[in-house]
Simulated assay, not measured.
Amino acid sequence: MANILTVDDSASMRQMVAFTLKAAGHSVTEAADGQQALQIAKGQSFDLVLTDVNMPVMDGLALTREIRQLPGYRFTPILILTTEAGTDKKQEGRAAGATGWLVKPFNPEQLLATVAKVLG
């Protein structure tokens, strides 16, 4: 299964996402903000990055732009999981390099189906 980096400043949200992904057989690494996630991504490779938008230190869109600059992450799927549902934010996410957009609260089956789709 996939090695996934999940990023959210909410510990309960990270736990729910990790639980859902691990139950489907994925390996999950958690980060509490974009800066922490970027440091982790620099040290190991992931098949997928799943990030929130609104976080302290570094938000998810800045993280997406930074990760896209790292060697080996140019084509890695990056999914945004956020409460933000506006078209402007989604376009900003696409411009930053996001592969897809999911709105919280998430449906576990929908999350797993989207993960499976972007992992091909």
Rank of each mutant, 00 (worst) to 15 (best):
M1W: 00
M1V: 14
L5C: 09
L5F: 12
T6C: 07
V7E: 01
D8E: 08
D8T: 05
D8I: 03
S10G: 13
S10H: 06
S10M: 12
S12V: 15
S12Y: 02
S12A: 11
R14P: 02
R14D: 02
Q15T: 09
A18G: 14
A18T: 12
L21Y: 03
K22W: 00
A23R: 09
A23H: 05
A24R: 10
G25I: 11
G25K: 14
H26P: 05
T29H: 12
T29V: 15
E30G: 05
E30D: 13
E30V: 12
A31I: 01
A32L: 00
D33Q: 00
G34S: 05
G34W: 03
Q36W: 04
L38K: 06
Q39V: 09
I40P: 01
A41D: 09
A41E: 14
K42L: 10
K42D: 10
G43A: 15
G43S: 08
Q44M: 11
S45Q: 13
S45G: 12
F46V: 11
D47V: 13
V49I: 10
L50F: 13
L50P: 02
D52E: 07
N54T: 12
N54S: 11
M55A: 03
P56I: 02
P56F: 02
P56H: 04
V57P: 00
M58E: 10
D59Q: 03
G60F: 00
G60N: 07
L63V: 07
R65T: 14
R68Y: 07
R68G: 11
Q69C: 11
P71Y: 08
P71Q: 04
F75Y: 10
F75T: 07
F75P: 04
T76K: 14
L79I: 15
I80A: 08
I80N: 08
L81W: 03
T83F: 12
A85V: 10
A85L: 07
T87W: 10
T87A: 11
D88F: 03
K89Y: 15
K90E: 12
K90W: 09
Q91S: 03
Q91P: 01
E92D: 07
E92Q: 13
E92K: 09
G93Q: 01
G93A: 11
R94P: 02
A95P: 01
G97A: 03
A98P: 05
T99D: 08
T99V: 06
T99N: 12
K104I: 06
K104Q: 05
P105G: 02
N107Y: 05
E109S: 08
L111Q: 08
T114S: 12
A116M: 07
V118Y: 15
L119C: 06
G120V: 10
G120A: 10
